[in-house]
C-alpha cells in the first residue's frame, strides 16, 4: 500500500458516499445515470468474487464489502425507492455496446484463462468505460448539479491517483498489471474534458455545462 493508492481508494469511497448522500438527502436521482451505476455494480461483483476465498488484508476485505454494499444500495435507491425521480429519458446510453466488447476483450486479452481471472479482467475493461452513460447523460441534459460534478471529480480522481500508484510501484520494481494500467489510463482520459470544465467552471461557482 502507498499514499497514492490509499488516496485513490478514499477518493473512490468519497465519490460513492457523495452520490448516496445526494440521492438520499434530495430524495431524488435526477441527473444521475442509473446505467452507469448498474455497470459499477457489475464491475464490483465480477471483481470482488475473490472476497470469499482469498484474504489479502482487513482493509482489502472491508473496502470490497463497502463498495459492493454501497453500489447495490445506490441501485436500490435509484430503481426502487426513488424510482419516480429517475430520468430515464436522458439515461439512454446503449450499455450492451460496453458490456459485450468488455466480455470479448477479456476472453481475448487476459493474463490467465481461468474464470476468476477472466471475470477480473472483464471488470477492469468494463470499469474503464462505465462512466460513459453518465457523461453522455450530462452532455444530453447540457448541465449537471454541482454535487454531481463533485461526485464525478472524486470518481475520476480515484483512477488518476491509481496511475500515480502504479508509477510509484514501478520505481519500487513491484509487480504491475499492464491490463489494469492501460484500462486505467483510458478511464482517466475519458474524464479529461470534464476535469477541465470542473477546474475552470465549477470551482469558480459556475454551473457545469458540457457541450451537448
Amino acid at each position: 500500500m502507498n499514499i497514492f493508492r490509499l488516496l485513490g481508494d478514499l477518493s473512490h469511497l468519497l465519490a460513492i458516499i457523495i452520490l448516496l448522500l445526494k440521492i438520499w438527502n434530495s430524495r431524488s436521482c435526477a441527473g444521475i445515470s442509473g446505467r452507469s451505476q448498474f455497470l459499477f455494480a457489475i464491475v464490483f461483483t465480477a471483481r470482488y468474487l475473490d472476497l470469499f476465498f482469498t484474504f489479502i488484508s482487513l482493509y482489502n476485505t472491508v473496502m470490497k464489502i463497502v463498495f459492493l454494499a454501497t453500489s447495490y444500495g445506490t441501485l436500490y435507491l435509484m430503481y426502487i425507492k426513488f424510482k419516480a425521480t429517475y430520468d430515464s429519458n436522458h439515461d439512454t446510453f446503449r450499455i450492451e455496446f460496453l458490456i459485450l466488447p468488455a466480455i470479448a476483450l477479456a476472453l481475448l486479452i487476459n493474463e490467465e484463462f481461468t474464470v476468476i481471472e477472466i471475470l477480473w479482467t472483464f471488470s477492469i475493461y468494463l470499469e474503464s468505460v462505465a462512466i460513459l452513460p453518465q457523461l453522455f447523460m450530462v452532455s444530453k441534459t447540457g448541465e449537471a448539479e454541482s454535487i454531481t460534478s463533485h461526485y464525478l471529480f472524486a470518481l475520476g480522481s480515484y483512477r488518476a491517483l491509481y496511475i500515480l500508484n502504479w508509477i510509484y510501484r514501478w520505481f519500487l520494481t513491484e509487480k504491475l498489471n499492464a491490463i489494469a494500467i492501460v484500462a486505467g489510463i483510458v478511464q482517466t482520459i475519458l474524464y479529461c474534458d470534464f476535469f477541465y470544465l470542473y477546474l475552470t467552471k465549477v470551482l469558480k461557482g459556475k454551473k457545469l455545462q458540457l457541450p451537448a
Binding site: 481508494d9 475473490d50 470490497k64 490467465e112
Partner: peptide
Amino acid sequence: QYEQHEHDEL
C-alpha cells in the same frame, strides 16, 4: 510475496 495472479489492488 504474491503469486502471479493475486490482485492486491481494489
